[in-house]
Nucleic acid binder design. Structure first.
Length: 259
DNA sequence: ATGCCTCCCCGAGGGAGA
């Protein structure tokens, strides 16, 4: 089962690029972030016509997540538990049943800048809720993954210019510690399990020729439960998508599971 | 980089992103 996570930076602006990418790569499951659309305006029929089931959790103007799947999406749940007052659409989960059942959680973790400040407090509080959801997922002892735009640069080798990010919400020690703390529960970070070394990025800013200079960061991740990690064949970043016509500023990250 | 683009809201210019 080939599963991709992709922050598309607006479904309206990315319909053509996303549609072409789906046609070319044929993911079994595509986990999307920043659809920037309410559910009613998401062009679901474009993807249904390609054979995908579509589940969205959108809101007006920004944020918004979705899952596309060739296999049925079962037991769909929207919103990260732990704060009923949180109105931001950043979490969706569903079960996909192939050779094995896999619980798929799609997430768009808050950016958190400027840090410190209320937006950074929201990021850390959201990560605390994520920690608790991760704990509950582990208790099921089943294949499950949490994938998406984490807005976390895990290590210095995940940025071309780490010094420029030192005090940024994506790289501050508190942010990285919160991400590591979730992994320490027993999750496998799929890309690092497959590929050591520096220079592998999933985001390049639109500004100042970041793509041309390869001034990127790696912030889109897969975390796998032990039962899911046992199924991991490979994980890779499809970086060349960033150089295509009218690209998102993120590129797809993939896992191939024996499921 | 105190944002050099891009996206959204709409139908001008501001908020948000990372």
């Amino acid at each position: 089962m080939k599963i991709a996570t992709f922050n598309i930076n607006g479904i309206k602006a990315r319909i053509t690029a996303l549609s072409d990418w789906i046609d070319d790569t044929q993911p079994d499951v595509a986990i999307l972030q920043e659809i920037k659309s309410i559910d009613e305006n998401f062009p679901r029929e474009i993807f249904e016509d390609k054979g995908y089931n579509v589940e969205t959790h959108g809101q007006k103007g920004f944020n918004g997540v979705a899952i596309l799947s060739k296999l049925p999406l079962e037991d769909v749940s929207r919103g990260l538990p732990g704060d009923d007052a949180d109105e931001q659409a950043r979490w969706i989960e569903a079960t996909v049943v192939g050779e094995k059942a896999v619980r798929i959680c799609g997430l768009y973790l808050p950016n958190g800048n400027p840090a410190p400040g209320p937006k950074y407090d929201y990021k850390l509080a959201w990560m605390e809720r994520l920690y608790h959801r991760a704990q509950d997922l582990l208790k099921l002892e089943e294949p499950a993954l949490m994938a998406g735009d984490y807005n976390i640069i895990p290590q210095v080798e995940d940025a071309e210019r780490p010094d420029a990010w030192r005090d940024d919400a994506l790289f501050r020690l508190e942010s990285r510690a919160a991400f590591q703390r979730i992994q320490n529960l027993g999750f496998t970070e799929a890309f690092r399990a497959c590929q050591p070394g520096s220079g592998h990025y999933s985001f390049w800013d639109y500004q100042a020729g970041a793509w041309e200079k390869n001034n990127g960061i790696r912030i889109d991740h897969f975390l796998l439960t032990p039962q899911c990690a046992d199924l991991l064949n490979t994980c890779w970043i499809e970086a060349d998508v960033r150089g295509r016509e009218k690209p998102s500023d993120h590129v797809p990250v993939w896992v191939d599971l024996a499921a």
